[in-house]
Simulated assay, not measured.
Amino acid sequence: MAFSLGPRAISAGYRLAAFDQIGSTNTEAMSCARDGVSGPMWFVTSEQTAGRGRRHRPWIAPRGNLAASVLEVIDVWPSIAATLGFAAGLALEVALRKVSLETSLRLAGSDQMKFFLKWPNDVLAGRQKLAGILLEAEAVASSRLAVVVGIGANVVAAPEGTSMPATSLAALGIRISAQELFTELSDAWAELRGIWDNGRGFGEIRQRWLARAAGLGEKVAIHTGGTTVEGTFDTLDEAGCMIVRTAEGRRVAIAAGDVYFGEAASTGAT
């Protein structure tokens, strides 16, 4: 089965470059941006051999998993472009719900079939990581910003030995292909990208994201560099920062870090 864009994505003017195997879809997308490709364009494969996640952690997609990157060349500040990651999380959650609907009905709403968004860039099935998102941005010609949003989803297999337990759609009983998931993702992205509207619609994106947020109102610990902030996950601010309410009642804005919820917040391990 070949990769294909959904009808909404086609109508929105997206193009597609599909690969049988590639080192990194993000790298390919950014290389094309440097060569003058203005997007919007998807780069997708079901086997990625040299991908990376946050903080340059490896993200390998064995054959059958989904690795996809979308290139958008836009006129926004980098701080605004960073909020596009929340639209990406929502788009993936929408796509996952659509492909898993039949299985969800069969399992009568099992907790495993509920998807949540973990700040800043993961999608969870229950408490297990199902997908990750990586944003990269670089100035290109005419002072525009090339933004590449990379999305990796565990369709047929999940990595082992990770700091956070991971799962796959196959392990959850959802028997679909990377190609099927991508088609739904491309349409959901076109819709959510339109709502985001170069940052002008982030208020709506923020509200939708909070409605699906993992750990909201729970005990949380965020490790960033050599610092740890502990408290309760209070909300998401207008810039996409996590707001943590400490035991002393202070509200601390966190821009980046590794997040641990519940018992893991106390032990420092996910």
Score class of each variant (00 low, 15 high):
175 R>M: 07
246 T>S: 08
256 A>K: 00
49 T>R: 14
47 E>D: 08
229 V>E: 14
222 I>D: 06
95 A>V: 01
233 F>M: 12
108 A>D: 14
124 L>T: 02
144 R>G: 00
113 M>G: 04
97 R>V: 00
159 P>T: 10
157 A>T: 15
33 A>D: 06
167 T>D: 12
25 T>Y: 13
235 T>Y: 04
185 L>T: 08
22 I>H: 04
58 P>F: 09
118 K>V: 03
49 T>A: 07
220 V>H: 00
123 V>N: 00
85 G>Q: 14
10 I>F: 00
122 D>F: 01
23 G>L: 03
127 R>H: 10
242 M>S: 02
124 L>G: 03
41 M>H: 15
82 A>V: 03
247 A>M: 01
7 P>I: 05
141 A>L: 05
47 E>Q: 15
81 A>R: 00
70 V>Q: 06
232 T>H: 08
44 V>N: 06
246 T>Y: 02
120 P>V: 08
141 A>S: 11
69 S>M: 08
242 M>C: 02
45 T>G: 10
269 A>S: 15
237 D>W: 07
166 A>D: 09
214 A>L: 12
217 G>Q: 07
16 L>I: 13
8 R>T: 12
146 A>N: 08
38 S>I: 10
213 A>D: 08
137 A>F: 04
109 G>P: 04
148 V>H: 09
2 A>E: 14
160 E>A: 15
95 A>M: 00
32 C>F: 07
61 A>Q: 13
156 V>D: 05
150 G>Q: 01
210 L>N: 00
217 G>L: 10
129 K>R: 10
150 G>R: 01
173 G>M: 05
82 A>M: 10
137 A>L: 04
